[in-house]
């Protein structure tokens, strides 16, 4: 039940890592669950807490909190985009 998690831009700077391999704990079934689980690491991971302006992608497409997370997925968290 491994997934890959990526962090970009200011969020990567804050949490201090660009990616990690992560074993899905039981009870983490959606993108929103995963975000809450990571935020519970505390300290700098508070940047992922509810109410913070964070977006997510699942397998390289924009994701909603209710989207499921499964083995082999690539989940990314990042601040709102600022291209163009």
């Amino acid at each position: 039940m491994n997934i890959k998690i990526l962090y970009f831009a200011s969020l990567r700077d804050t949490v201090g890592r660009a990616e990690e391999s992560f074993v899905l704990p039981s009870g983490v079934a959606t993108v929103g669950d995963l975000r809450a689980f990571l935020a519970d690491r505390g300290d700098k991971w508070d940047a992922l807490a509810e109410g913070r302006n964070v977006r997510a992608a699942r397998n390289q497409r924009m994701a909603n909190p209710a989207d499921p997370v499964g083995p082999g997925d690539e989940i990314a968290f990042f601040p709102p985009v600022t291209g163009g």
């Binding site: 970009f8 831009a9 924009m62 990314a76 990042f78 985009v81 600022t82 291209g83 163009g84």
Partner: peptide
């Protein structure tokens, strides 16, 4: 295309 790109394409400016 520009309006959608601004909010959906994953780019970040430093």
């Amino acid at each position: 295309v520009m309006d959608y790109l601004k909010t959906r394409a994953p780019f970040w400016k430093l």
